[in-house]
C-alpha cells in the first residue's frame, strides 16, 4: 500500500512563497486561508543575522490526531495516506483544528465565501473555486489529490523554483524519498507529538559512508 509524502530540502528553500501562491491558485482558497505557507524566523544578533525559512503544509500524518478526534468521521485517511475532509459530514466542531499540532486546518466562517479578496463580489475564479467549499466546515491541504489522481504532482511541488520539494511514495525502503531521508538524516516536524507525519525535512549535510 502506498503512503504518499514529501521531502523538503531546507538548504534549497529561499523563502520566495511561490508554493504559497501556487497553492492559493490551485485551490482558490478564501482570504487568510493558506494550505501551504512559509514560516520565517530571524536568527542571530545584529550584524550577524539571517532569516530561516520553513515551508509547511498538512503533514498527512499516519497517526493523525485530527482524524482521531473527529466525532463525525468527516476526517479520514485515504488508502494512499492522504488525509481528507468530507465536507458533507463535517459539523464544524473544530476539534480537528485544536488537535492538529501543525495548525494546518482552516475553518470557513459564515459569510467568508460571500465576498472575494477585493470586497466587491466574487471574481470568476472565486465563483468557480468557492463552489467547492461550504461555510461552517473545515478545509485543509489535500496534497492536491485531484492532481495526484491524474498522475501529476502537487502544485507546490511543480512550482518550486529551487526544486526543494520531492514528492512520492514513502513506503518502499529503496525508493527515492526513503533514500533522501536516510542519506540526509531527514526528520519530520514535532516528532514528540507521535503523529508519524508524511512530510520530512532535510537540513544537514549528506552523511558520509
Amino acid at each position: 500500500m502506498a503512503r504518499l509524502g514529501m521531502v523538503i530540502d531546507l538548504r534549497r528553500c529561499i523563502g520566495c512563497n511561490a508554493c504559497t501562491i501556487a497553492c492559493k491558485q490551485e485551490h482558490g482558497t478564501p482570504e487568510d486561508v493558506h494550505f501551504a505557507r512559509v514560516v520565517t524566523r530571524e536568527v542571530g544578533t545584529y550584524p550577524a543575522t539571517r532569516r530561516t525559512f520553513l515551508p509547511v503544509l498538512c503533514n498527512h500524518c499516519a497517526d493523525a490526531p485530527c482524524v482521531e478526534v473527529c466525532p463525525s468521521g468527516a476526517s479520514y485517511i485515504r488508502a494512499d495516506g492522504i488525509v481528507l475532509v468530507d465536507r458533507e459530514k463535517c459539523i464544524g466542531c473544530r476539534a480537528c483544528a485544536v488537535a492538529c499540532p501543525y495548525m494546518n486546518r482552516h475553518f470557513l466562517e459564515r459569510g467568508l465565501l460571500r465576498h472575494g479578496y477585493n470586497g466587491d463580489g466574487l471574481s470568476v475564479l472565486e465563483a468557480v473555486k468557492f463552489a467547492e467549499f461550504e461555510e461552517g466546515t473545515m478545509i485543509k491541504c489535500n496534497l492536491c489529490a485531484h492532481r495526484v489522481d491524474q498522475g501529476l504532482e502537487p502544485a507546490c511541488v511543480v512550482t518550486c523554483p529551487t526544486e526543494c520539494r520531492f514528492f512520492g511514495d514513502l513506503e518502499p525502503e529503496a525508493g527515492r524519498l526513503q533514500s533522501l531521508i536516510r542519506d540526509h538524516g531527514g526528520k519530520p516536524l514535532l516528532p514528540e507529538c507521535n503523529t508519524r507525519p508524511s512530510i520530512y525535512y532535510l537540513d544537514g549535510e549528506p552523511r558520509q559512508a
Partner: peptide, 12 residues
C-alpha cells in the same frame, strides 16, 4: 492554550 512553535528540524 498554546501550540508549540514549528521550527526547522536539525538533521544531525
Amino acid at each position: 492554550g498554546l501550540y508549540s512553535p514549528q521550527t526547522a528540524p536539525r538533521s544531525h
